[in-house]
Simulated scan of single mutants.
Amino acid sequence: MKTLTDSLAASNAEAELFRRKYSDLQLRMEALGLDGASKDKAKLEQRLLSAVSDLQLTQKERDEYRDQMLRLSEAMLHLLKTSTGGDAKARMELEAQLRSTNQLVAKAAEPVDAPGTLMDGNVISLKEDWSLVVGNLGEKQGVRIGMPLRVVRDNRVIATLRVVDVRRRICGAVVQEMGSEKEKIKVGDRLQADARQNVTLK
């Protein structure tokens, strides 16, 4: 009987220890924003996809910095090699590269303003193979899957899109109709929510 009592006491102590560890783990997961991960796997996957997308955009920007710095280094080396003769062309190239670097750094220093509404987005990337347009409108602005968008250039609608994927700050939309076969969608074109129904561009 004493052995059973001791075993029961030990089991209760272990159970209490595991309850505390479980509670501590839940608190840590909540602090990391992973609360209910086992209950809502889709939400966790969405956060992961959003993080991967943000990482890809950051890597692209980093590559632009690297390329510009390499060009600057090459121009400086060229100037150093030719500085004894006072090569004006090399000096001009160095100045041009320095200006480009300064512009890139100034652009990066500006705060990135996300569009405030569904009417002032921009095309930030294109996947022409899939007729996919990536815009800087996302959940933050109220974009939903299935939402119609229009691409605007010079106050003219040049294409209509349908949203197929939404992240926090970006969305992906497939091209539904082009206004003209000659006019292609470009990075920088304006994106707007399209509340019109059954409107054709032709």
Rank of each mutant, 00 (worst) to 15 (best):
T3C: 04
L4A: 06
T5H: 11
S7C: 09
S7I: 12
L8A: 11
L8M: 14
L8V: 14
E16M: 12
F18Y: 06
F18C: 01
K21T: 03
R28L: 00
L32E: 13
G33S: 07
G33L: 04
G33T: 07
K43M: 03
L44A: 11
E45Y: 13
R47N: 05
L48I: 14
L49T: 10
A51W: 09
L55H: 12
Q56R: 12
T58S: 15
T58D: 11
E61V: 11
Y65R: 15
R66F: 09
Q68H: 05
L70Q: 12
R71D: 11
S73L: 09
E74N: 15
L77K: 14
L79G: 04
L80I: 12
L80E: 08
K81E: 06
T82Q: 10
S83R: 13
S83N: 12
T84Q: 10
G85I: 08
G85T: 08
G86Y: 04
A90C: 07
A90S: 15
M92A: 13
E93S: 08
E93Y: 02
L94V: 12
Q97S: 11
L98G: 10
L98E: 08
Q103R: 15
V105F: 10
K107A: 15
A108E: 10
A108D: 14
A109D: 12
E110M: 15
E110R: 15
P115Y: 03
G116N: 06
M119P: 01
G121L: 06
G121H: 02
N122C: 00
I124N: 02
S125P: 01
S125E: 12
L126M: 07
L126Y: 04
K127Y: 06
E128Y: 12
E128G: 09
D129E: 13
L132K: 13
V133L: 07
G135M: 06
N136G: 01
G138N: 03
G138Y: 04
E139Q: 09
Q141K: 05
G142Y: 07
G142D: 00
G142R: 05
V143P: 05
G146F: 10
M147V: 03
M147Q: 10
R150N: 01
R153F: 00
D154Q: 07
V157I: 11
R162E: 04
R162T: 11
V164H: 06
D165Q: 10
R167Y: 06
R168M: 02
R169Y: 08
G172E: 04
V174N: 08
E177Q: 14
E177C: 02
M178P: 03
M178C: 09
M178V: 08
G179P: 02
K182V: 07
K182P: 03
K184S: 09
I185N: 01
K186D: 01
D189R: 07
D189N: 08
D189V: 04
R190A: 06
L191N: 02
Q192Y: 02
A193C: 03
A195C: 00
A195E: 02
A195I: 13
R196I: 07
R196W: 04
V199Y: 07
T200F: 07
T200W: 05
K202M: 09
